[in-house]
Amino acid sequence: MEYVANKENIAKRIARFFKNGDVVNLGIGLPTLVGNYVPEGVELILQSENGFMGLGPAPEPGKEDPMLVNAGGMPVSILPGGCYFDSAMSFAIIRGGHIAATVLGVLEVDQEGNLANYKIPGKMVPGMGGAMDLTVGAKTVFAATQHFDAKGSSKLLRRCKLPLTAAAQVDYVVTDVGLFQVKDGAFVLKEYFKPYTVDYILEKTDADIVVDKDCKEVDLA
């Protein structure tokens, strides 16, 4: 079986977790895609850590406002009912447990729920930005990642080697091959995504995986 990276499937599966009215912070990059797949009838309230909630879509070309950008500096809009605040309030909301969930990108994630996503020493040091606070503060932390990196190595590990963004905070890891819950020092496989199989995942993942008794195949196409 050949692995084909599929960011859309990761975003689609995470989007199905959310309930109407959940306040969510989506990281930059792959996590932002989650907003595109929120099921009908579910309205998410998106928090943007640079200082507002009620994050709306990018404006039409020509209607951008340089004073209204997301945490990646890109022009966005604010929805009715949204509000602005300073960075201390923004992180009081994040750290204080007022956010239902955050979705963050991954360099490495391990079976203890440790996440590394801000630094490759000597190579890439972008800084943690808001990721450390988000990982510690959000009620549910989703790590969103392709199952394998460009070299084909498993991004799910027994133990992270890179500097950690946060220790033991990840609740779910959603890849393009399956859904894993981090529990008691292992990845619990809850769902495997068509066309992958349980055997494929067990063989190719460099970590301890427990297959949940209710584990099932899910078709995200």
Binding site: D86, S90, F91, A131, M132, G137
Partner: peptide, 10 residues
Amino acid sequence: QLVPQGTLAE
């Protein structure tokens, strides 16, 4: 000196 954003604010 890198500081987590919420920590820097606070």
